[in-house]
Amino acid sequence: MPAGPSARTARTLAFVESPVQLLNVLEWAHVTGGPGTDTPLPGPREGDRPLRDGIPRQPRDRDLAPVRPVDTGLVVVVLAPHDPMTRGQLRRMAELARDQGHQVRWEEARGGPGAPVQTVGGLAGALRKAHRVVIGDPFSRYVQLLLTITRARELVVVDDGTATMEFVAQLARGERLVRWHRRGSRGARDIAFAPVSASARRRLTPNDRRAVEVFTAMPVEPPPGVTVTPNDFAWTRATFGPPRLTRGTDLVGTSLVETGVVDPDRYLDAVAALARTHGATRYFAHRRESPDKLRRIGARVGLEVVRPELPLELIARRGPIGRTVLSFPSTVVHTLPLALAGTGVTVAVCDIDPVWLTEGASPRAEGFLSEVTDTAPDVRRLPVMPLTAP
């Protein structure tokens, strides 16, 4: 991380790789009243763009400028992914973070063969000096590597969706950190990285020198010593809405096909059956859904496919949004009822039929997806859709 002659170190560093992670950093900062301040880090940032109807316009890569001083003492480091949709949402979330007085540093952490070394090397000094480190994805190899460097006395894990449930469960059982949709076998890269992953897991275990907090909207049973702070989307509700409600029904997409869990044809059949049965007219795409799949949904099912520019919790809160929102088991069955509390919107969830799963799906997938639905307290349960031709 380049440093100017007068630069000092941020007290709190947050590392995010997705828009939802950044949203939950903002929620955490709102609930905690801000992390306190030393001084801002220097470094590259994406350019300031004026807001239009509450949504920042897309910054261009050449719109980079030095970071301006801020007051909160929180520096959000974006470890930018390749996916264009994710990058676009992250840019917009970065503007909202700056509006809250936080500093955002954009790192092209995957920009080429030398990018990881340059990124980690540039962050090492600040990591060693930071009092608190906030992370959004404890399963990320990038984050695990950074955790081996930090000497922070406080570690905070903010929600990365339903993955938080699996992270806390694995931490409590003392298991290695593995995403729920991955199969058990390990390749050469996993084996080579295992010492780093094990070190990161030890860092995420509290002791007399280090406190660990999980900030989550998910139902979790933390291991001894881990503090759980509920996330009820107070910042989102205070900042956006209430939304205008339409008379229609909206359907929320998932990336279960892209992660290899659900068969693509079965998924398309299920979407068609849900839309036909409940009169859905719009399909809010997950940021990781493939363009080809979305084209098939629009052409075959006739749904209007919406690719949101912000996380769905913010889009729904701003409105317009249907009075009923349908979803398969996913993060939103836990987060949307919180973000839309008091608005009159009903969130309904349709379970995944085990026959929809691919042959390569993790043995953990069926049970985990059922757990996601079973533990969602404020949703309406729908029966599994019969996949018959219209």
Rank of each mutant, 00 (worst) to 15 (best):
A7R: 11
L13H: 05
V16K: 00
E17T: 11
A29N: 06
G33L: 08
G36F: 06
L41D: 06
P42Y: 08
P42V: 10
E46Y: 03
P56D: 07
P59E: 07
L64Y: 00
P66N: 09
G73I: 00
G73M: 04
V75R: 05
V75L: 14
V76Q: 00
D83Q: 14
D83S: 12
D83L: 14
P84R: 10
R87C: 12
M93H: 10
E95I: 00
A97C: 08
W106R: 07
W106M: 06
E107L: 14
A109Y: 10
G111H: 07
P113I: 03
V134T: 05
I135L: 15
S140Q: 04
T148L: 03
T150K: 01
E154K: 14
E154D: 11
L155A: 05
V156E: 10
D159A: 12
G161T: 04
T164L: 14
E166R: 15
L171P: 03
L171Q: 09
E175W: 12
S185C: 07
S185H: 15
I191D: 09
S197A: 15
S199F: 08
R202D: 12
L204N: 00
N207K: 08
R209W: 07
P219F: 10
N231L: 06
D232K: 11
A234C: 04
W235S: 08
T236F: 00
S255Q: 09
V257H: 06
T259W: 11
V262E: 00
D265H: 12
A270N: 08
R276K: 12
R282P: 01
F284M: 06
R288P: 00
S290G: 13
P291V: 09
R295G: 06
I297D: 01
R300V: 15
E309F: 09
L310A: 02
P311W: 03
P311C: 08
G319A: 07
G322E: 07
R323G: 15
T324P: 00
L326M: 10
S330H: 09
V347L: 12
D351K: 02
E359K: 14
L369Q: 04
A376Q: 02
P377L: 07
V379F: 03
V379Q: 02
L382Y: 10
P386L: 04
A389W: 13
A389Y: 12
P390C: 02
